[in-house]
């Protein structure tokens, strides 16, 4: 690297800074907004003149937000667990077994990955009202896990193809029963892929807005993105900008944590699943 000229390094440095600014600035802006006092809210500054927790206190005082937060976490977690469980089974079959219909399964996942959610909103809205799961956790979990299944199957089968399955043989010769070989060798090797997939699926469910506003009508199941959107309408004259900003920051925290700690895995998961399919 010593040979790398100074101009070269400077150029990459500038490019890197531009990329980082591009990616983070809007996030920084809304975070700054969330720490502003209502009186300075409109100053347009990038750094709050006076830092305040007022907005956060405000949203955590209302059940509108706290309830939505609980809904968001619960619904996203349950959907993730189910989607990853079903996805793991299917991906194992896709990566390791020969059976007719594999192509159909893969094609079907692809179709669903491309499916416009709005097309499902009207029938699901009606069906869920009829069978009584409208505005419940289940009512959201069902579409979430369905739409994240293709993602789970793709990512997991890409990961599973990478596992050196020879090790299973080695374990058997080393004296393991099939169950032991699975538990002591295959599970530890598959776990990182499953975990990465879980993160991606969680982000996907956490992110949804369309189903959240269409299939809920009260606090019972409304998730944070939907709840935030309803903050706005509360008053014509006093914009709840501060509250929205604070709520936005709160639901961004898990994303930031994932990205900070699992950057490598997320990149690997997204790239392997997408191209090798």
């Amino acid at each position: 690297m010593a040979a790398v000229g100074k101009t070269h390094a400077t150029r990459w440095g500038v490019l890197n800074v531009v990329v980082v600014l591009y990616a983070l600035f809007p996030v920084w802006w809304i975070a700054a907004l969330s720490f502003k006092d209502p009186s300075t809210l409109t100053d347009g500054d990038y750094i709050p003149r006076e830092w305040t927790w007022e907005n956060y206190r405000g949203i955590f005082d209302t059940s509108e937000f706290t309830r939505a937060l609980v809904n968001s976490i619960g619904i996203a977690l349950i959907s993730t667990v189910i989607a990853v469980a079903l996805g793991t089974m299917a991906a194992y079959a896709v990566a390791r077994l020969r059976f007719p219909g594999k192509k159909v399964l893969i094609g079907m996942s692809l179709l669903i990955a491309m499916f416009p959610p709005i097309s499902l909103v009207s029938p699901l809205f009606n069906i869920e009202r009829i069978i009584g799961i409208f505005d419940t956790w289940i009512g959201l979990i069902i579409p979430y896990m369905t739409f994240s299944l293709p993602l789970a199957i793709y990512t997991l089968s890409a990961f599973f193809r990478e596992i050196p399955w020879d090790l299973e043989k080695a374990a058997k010769v080393d004296g393991a029963t099939p169950a032991q070989a699975f538990r002591m060798v295959i599970v530890p090797l598959a776990a990182p892929g499953v975990f990465t997939t879980a993160i991606l699926v969680f982000i996907f469910c956490w992110n949804d807005f369309l189903f959240a506003i269409s299939l809920t009508s009260t606090e019972a199941a409304r998730t944070v993105p939907a709840a935030i959107a309803f903050f706005t309408g509360s008053s014509q004259f006093q914009q709840p900008t501060g509250s929205i900003a604070a709520a936005a920051v709160v639901i961004t925290i898990p994303i930031i944590l994932f990205v900070l700690f699992f950057q490598r895995r997320i990149v690997a998961g997204l790239t392997s699943g997408a191209v090798k399919g």
């Binding site: 020879d166 090790l167 080695a170 010769v173 080393d174």
Partner: peptide
């Protein structure tokens, strides 16, 4: 005991 070409180390 078996030694594999790929070594098959865990």
């Amino acid at each position: 005991a078996m030694v594999f070409q790929s070594y098959a180390l865990y």
